[in-house]
Write a protein that binds this DNA or RNA. Sequence first.
DNA 1: AGTATATTCAACCGAATGGTTGACGATGCT
DNA 2: AGCATCGTCAACCATTCGGTTGAATATACT
Lengths: 126, 126
Amino acid sequence: MVDDALRLWFCHLMSDRLDSVFAALADPTRRAILAMLLEDDMAVTDVAEPFEMSLAAISKHLGILSRAGLIQQEKRGRVKWCKLDPDALREASVWMQGFGQFEAVNLDAFERFLASELPDDPPPHG
Amino acid sequence: MVDDALRLWFCHLMSDRLDSVFAALADPTRRAILAMLLEDDMAVTDVAEPFEMSLAAISKHLGILSRAGLIQQEKRGRVKWCKLDPDALREASVWMQGFGQFEAVNLDAFERFLASELPDDPPPHG
DNA sequence: AGTATATTCAACCGAATGGTTGACGATGCT
DNA sequence: AGCATCGTCAACCATTCGGTTGAATATACT
């Protein structure tokens, strides 16, 4: 049995963590970085390469992702390797599932959403 | 198989929406509001009651949640009722699932859906 | 009609965010 | 040793964010 003070403390801890995870995910550059790291571990410079912003900016983004627990960074020699750490994402996902009367991936709702968004921006196809 | 142009378009499309959803979720007050609405629909004043901040502040938070698609607001008489709308959460969840187990987003089904939906029937947006 | 209630608007404020640049400490190469 | 590369730090800037307050609008009550 968990007493109320402990529960409060737990929620508070959880709250800070969710703050930083969701805030980290709220930026398209950082989501793009995560997507890149999904395919392979990368050095900071290589992460920065496809983006049209300074290395320092990317370095900051990586710091935010790291502090949120979404990636891990390990320095080997003079290069710092970045790898995805999906644990924090999983926590956030668990939180979200609490709202889900939804089974993991509901493609129907997904498609309904897309249908509502379609007219704006036709896909560059063909 | 989905071609790269389509994937790019897809990412761009989702991007704005994900920005606002994750940004909305990155605030503990707003997450608390969502948790309250999970139990029941509420009027703005009632949502504000347990928080130690002004009604105007809560009204702003509700606006952010609403614009992110996380809640729906309906005015009946002089009271505006707020209800949870888990669709946006579901979309964000879909995105996150991509980083967990790799059934990823089913882009094949997505493409088939687009093929059937794109040519005519442009749904009104906004 | 007059008053109370529900909600938003507008203007403001301090702090945080996302970016820049230039200098800097470390590490590797020759 | 000398130089190039990797990455961060510090200072700055414009914009956004989360909050306040007071006025305004719309609806309900008597």
